[in-house]
């Protein structure tokens, strides 16, 4: 990782990104550029993610939306090819500062992936996994937290009688909610969701979307999705990325009815560029 300006990055494009002043921000991305080796993925991207809101990143495949999402909890750290510059602030603190522990960052900024990935253990143990890693917690406290997390993930009523059953006995939609419960159990402030419903049937998708809506009273959520209707349904703000740059960012209400730029219009209405 390099903190100095890397010649592989294109010069910063003034005015290329339409920013606006959303509510109090939770995450602030400042001039973030990122490349996989010689291939740039994000270029001088700046964006503020408002607290306790759902922000969606949309854009064509390869536009950098997943790369950006992963950067928010430092999932690129282990990839030596990745070159980064710019800053990401969580509550005003640089997440790459030397005093920040990656494990603690990932507790605060949880991540849910496209394919549900429950661990090969019981439903209960899946949710309690993070708590056990964190150290000694009384059984009583652990039981309470597991129940709270499963309730928060809208799964409790479906699994309360079989907490010791294997997580793999659950349906895809239930597994995804279990993974969300596992993430919630460690008390994150931000939840990153990378295509959380793309492998699910319509009913399970609606349950996940309902869950996202309910969670924003206590969490800041960032959602990456290919499904524009989903972004329109659940998000408060939408950022449209293309070719590694932020094209347009604004309230979902206006972005889907009257986008400011032709590029955005073309993408969301399915027109040729």
């Amino acid at each position: 990782m390099s903190a100095t300006r890397d010649p592989r990055f294109a010069p910063r494009l003034a005015g290329a990104c339409i920013d606006f002043a959303p509510e109090a921000s939770c995450l602030e991305i400042q001039g973030l550029s990122l490349a996989y080796g010689d291939t740039p993925a994000l270029e001088a991207l700046s964006l503020r993610v408002p607290r306790h809101r759902v922000t969606a990143f949309i854009g064509p495949s390869g536009c950098g939306k997943s790369t950006l999402l992963r950067a928010l909890n430092r999932l690129h750290d282990l990839n030596e090819e990745v070159v980064r510059e710019g800053r990401i602030l969580l509550d005003g603190q640089d997440i790459h500062a030397p005093e920040v522990s990656v494990a603690e960052l990932r507790r605060r900024v949880g991540m849910v992936f496209q394919a549900p990935n429950p661990f090969p253990m019981s439903i209960y143990d899946n949710v309690a996994f993070g708590l056990r890693l964190q150290g000694r917690v009384s059984k009583r406290k652990r039981d309470d937290t597991v129940e709270w997390a499963l309730r928060s993930a809208a799964l409790w009523h479906e699994v309360k009688d079989r907490l010791q059953a294997s997580a793999w006995s659950l349906s895809g939609g239930q597994q995804q909610r279990l993974v969300i419960a596992r993430t919630l159990a460690v008390g994150p402030e931000v939840l990153l969701l990378d295509e959380p419903a793309s492998a699910l049937d319509p009913i399970s998708t609606l349950k996940i979307e309902e869950l996202i809506r309910n969670l924003k009273s206590t969490l800041t959520l960032v959602l990456v999705t290919h499904n524009m209707q989903q972004a329109a349904r659940v998000s408060d703000y939408t950022a449209f990325l293309q070719g590694g740059e932020l094209v347009e960012y604004g309230p979902t209400d206006t972005l889907f009815t009257n986008p400011r730029l032709r590029r955005t219009e073309n993408y969301i209405t399915g027109r040729m560029a």
């Binding site: 400011r260 730029l261 032709r262 955005t264 219009e265 209405t269 399915g270 027109r271 040729m272």
Partner: peptide
């Protein structure tokens, strides 16, 4: 964004056009 008269004929889906 303002639209122009040809805008509704540029979809990838010709059926939609």
């Amino acid at each position: 964004m303002d639209i122009t008269s040809d805008i509704h004929s540029q979809h990838i889906s010709r059926q939609f056009n």
